[in-house]
Design a protein around this nucleic acid. Sequence first.
DNA 1: AGCAAATACTTAAAGCTTGTAAGTAAGCGA
DNA 2: TCGCTTACTTACAAGCTTTAAGTATTTGCT
Lengths: 189, 189
Amino acid sequence: MARAGLTVERLTRAAADLADEIGFQNVTVSALTRSFGVKPAALYAHIKDARDLRVKVALLAMAELADRAAAALAGRAGKDALVAFANAYRDYARQHPGRYAAMQTELDPETAAASAGSRHAEMTRAILRGYELSEPDQTDAVRMLHSTFHGYVSLETTGGFRHHPREAAASWSRTLDALDALLRNWPPA
Amino acid sequence: MARAGLTVERLTRAAADLADEIGFQNVTVSALTRSFGVKPAALYAHIKDARDLRVKVALLAMAELADRAAAALAGRAGKDALVAFANAYRDYARQHPGRYAAMQTELDPETAAASAGSRHAEMTRAILRGYELSEPDQTDAVRMLHSTFHGYVSLETTGGFRHHPREAAASWSRTLDALDALLRNWPPA
DNA sequence: AGCAAATACTTAAAGCTTGTAAGTAAGCGA
DNA sequence: TCGCTTACTTACAAGCTTTAAGTATTTGCT
């Protein structure tokens, strides 16, 4: 029998694709190895265990999203940058729901520190350069922006806005307007 | 052998407590029935399947949170109401991480419609009465508030703010200041 | 080319999970 | 006390994770 050519990269990518198709929760070792035409046990030569696989998908997604966000941010400033960054975030989550769900996996501190999460935080800080906020307001604003983006996308993808006729995209656009206005007028402590 | 006295209510509550202790993901039929000293099969006389159990925990959590939010909101208006509501939300999530995680379970539309989620949306709308917003800005603001609350709490509980020394509670408080300022100055379309 | 070593995968098996079906025992009403 | 309903157990099938040991394939050395 010819070998399947499993590698950590191929497995991680396939798991991510599978997550986007069938949902992150439904990605099992069995299902993944099945898609390669090998037996479940074959996975353990490449990946420690199921949790390790999930973490690797999470890190992949974070890196991909950071790449997209960086590309969106290039050459922009102010509201332009804010909107481009936010849309990159939302678009990624909508196009890759499984990968996005994977990003919610809890990472141990060292793994988190080595992840693309920090690139993300840096980029958010870069956006704020257009808004003249000094510490600790800057950190608070970074957290608020990230919260709003994540919260919106999370609620939208889990159907939280479906019961009202107003388009989710319209509210999103206005939310970005509001954030821009807020950052230009951040309240004093 | 004496009977264990299983009921849907007791099972749901026990599952919610177990979720707060060991994490919602780790709540299994086996673990739950073990805590009652009965065999797994005994559960299926009361609850359809594992998903049904998870949904029931989600609905319980939503109802509990709505009760707390309603109590917090009573007799308050304006920023006072906003802060009280937001803190009820965050406090509940921090005190009941398993229940809060359960709330992210995807519900089918009819179940969602019958859930306490609508009470939540109504309360958020009630807060906005103090800020004179008309449609569709009101809907957009409701969505933004919910997004920010959920996003913040979600990131905080999954450790997203742990890599920076700034207290999560401090950023939260300033985020509420910012939201209040924003609602008083919602940008025109 | 041919052989040994390393690598990639399979088989086998244990222990966990969800879920169904059928059997038994407990408690209630007459 | 008899019998019915209800609550639970036993037994079992099927799927998932993971380890250990075995086999086949490829690599690399001579």
